Amino acid sequence: MDRSNARLCDVANLILGAILLFSPWIFGFEAGHLSQNAVISGIVIAVLAIAALAAFAVWEEWLNLIVGLWVLVSPWVLGFAGNRTAMTVHVIIGALVAILAAVEIWITQPPFRLPTSR
């Protein structure tokens, strides 16, 4: 599979990580665990995207998938689902990062084939 499509996913994840990183200031999140979660998760997503752009390894995409899923569910796990702005930002960015990572895993991995008996 052409790596250029996967690179587009990495660039998109880099942008999403940067948005999440700066979201407490952009959207005025209150200080505390929801801002910390946004900053730390945004840094992790951006660093993984940069690493994937520099030298692709499938483990980076699996980690991005895990971090994206964490960001998606973190409003409920950390108890800030009542803050609609922070929740919306986390759910949307988490879902997009997870989807992009899953797509990149799918396009870069060879298809699974069952062994044929002869």
Rank of each mutant, 00 (worst) to 15 (best):
E61G: 04
V67K: 03
L100K: 12
L69V: 14
G28Q: 08
Q109I: 00
V97S: 12
S74W: 11
Q109T: 12
A31C: 02
S35K: 05
I99V: 15
V58P: 02
T85Y: 04
I26W: 03
R118P: 05
M87S: 10
S117Y: 06
L96C: 14
V97M: 13
L100T: 05
M1E: 12
G17D: 05
M87G: 13
Q36K: 07
L53C: 01
W70K: 04
V91Y: 02
L48M: 06
A18M: 14
R118A: 11
F22H: 01
E104D: 15
L72Q: 04
A95W: 05
A95D: 11
L34Y: 08
I45W: 10
N5G: 13
L65M: 14
T116E: 11
V73H: 03
H90P: 10
I93G: 10
V11G: 09
T88W: 11
T88P: 03
R3G: 07
W25T: 03
T108W: 04
P115A: 04
L96G: 14
F29H: 05
N64D: 02
V47N: 07
L48W: 00
N5Q: 14
F56H: 14
A18K: 08
P75K: 07
T85P: 04
L8F: 13
A46D: 01
V91R: 07
F80N: 03
A18D: 07
M87K: 03
V73D: 12
A98H: 08
R84I: 11
G68T: 05
R113S: 03
L100E: 13
A81Q: 12
I93H: 06
A81G: 10
I107P: 00
R113V: 01
I50R: 00
F112W: 14
A101K: 08
